[in-house]
Design a protein around this nucleic acid. Structure first.
Lengths: 208, 208
DNA sequence: TATGATAATGGACAGCTTGTTCGGGATTTT
DNA sequence: AAAATCCCGAACAAGCTGTCCATTATCATA
């Protein structure tokens, strides 16, 4: 019995995944048909359906593999990083770096091209990571854990998207700094407290 | 010449919009076909294409109308609300109330059922509102305006989604309090190290 | 290396959706 | 009432979907 998967299978699947990625980058996920995929991958129709039930299934399987890699890598880094227990956003820096390295992939998945499925999968993966981090650093309060987790994940995706769409020239650490500043400190730090009783925010005084 | 639109036209469009909403609530936007819509609205195929070019066009037109209503309402409230100029999140409370009243609509548009188009339209509308609010309360800092706006909008949508999906029993003001606490104060207030001072966001005015 | 077993492959099929076109019929406006 | 406008229903080609089957290539074993 083939304990490992047949090489033919593996090759086909790899071709399909690659074709999907390429086409998503070119046309976007939603506008994509199975026909396009098998055409790009040079694979027969029935071959596709022998491996996956739909294009959504194909995409999901890709994320499934990615998820295993990431959780593995994270558990490893989790083991050796005991020092900064009071930082609930340990993941962000590494993730921004990762995103910069695989910019095409992330761009494809997160922007409008990614479709609802991709974004959802990403949310799930990130939610797990964030939940794990928050469990050790956050105290129980009036705000449910779930809510905080979703908040952090949403902010991260927002940051990533803004980065790619608006200021792709920024370095990962710069974006990370903004992200951390907003998520950790909130908006309060940016409000002009001195003007609360003043008449009008007329003269914008720059103080770096 | 028809200064107003023909009643027949108006009736047909209304029927189409209503059918779209109904079907989105039932099956979700993505899984929807034009066939379904004209079937539900009891309208001929060619009639549909006489008014809209696609189901996306139909959805967009709905948001276009909504947008005009909202911006109008907001500019009105903007005119009479000069008191709390130091609150960058004036919109949230009213929006959560609005969402509670039209729960079905929001649920349909924002959750997974809404599709990418709906969420994008909503993001655009909210971005305008938030940008306008932030322009008067936020001072220039190291973090670009765009980034902050997207951050706030994302957090709001996250809150809304969490509310509907997880704790629909909560009142609008409760969710609003959580939202404000996180967005204004950030995560720092919830970290174990600094557990003593929390509970209240800086610019929060108690509403119950 | 030869051979049977296994699994992937390609092409063909029916069913469905899409967007367009047309003339007859109904409703609104003048 | 007459004219203008809009709705309707049907039919059309084109495209995609998911499933079938016989064929072919690859694997494990002797």
């Amino acid at each position: 019995m083939p304990r490992e998967i047949d090489r033919r299978s593996a090759r086909t699947r790899k071709a399909l995944h690659q074709a999907l990625l390429e086409l998503m980058l070119r046309k976007g996920y939603e506008a994509l048909s199975v026909q396009d995929i098998i055409d790009e991958a040079d694979v027969g129709r029935s071959t596709f359906y022998a491996h996956y039930t739909s294009k959504e299934d194909l995409l999901r399987s890709g994320f499934h593999m990615l998820r295993e890699e990431l959780t593995e890598a994270q558990s490893a880094s989790h083991a050796r990083a005991e020092a900064s227990r009071d930082d609930p956003l340990r993941f962000s820096a590494a993730m921004f770096e990762h995103a910069a390295r695989y910019a095409d992939h992330f761009r494809t998945m997160i922007g409008g091209r990614g479709g609802a499925v991709a974004e959802n999968e990403i949310r799930l993966i990130l939610s797990d990571m964030v939940r794990q981090e928050l469990s050790s650093t956050l105290q129980d309060g009036t705000i449910p854990r779930d809510f905080v987790v979703q908040f952090v994940v949403g902010a991260f995706l927002t940051a990533l998207n803004w980065w790619f769409e608006r200021k792709p020239k920024l370095s990962p650490s710069e974006v990370d700094a903004m992200f951390r500043s907003l998520v950790l400190g909130g908006l309060a730090q940016m409000i002009t407290k001195e003007r609360r009783q003043a008449a009008r925010p007329a003269a914008g005084r720059d103080n770096d």
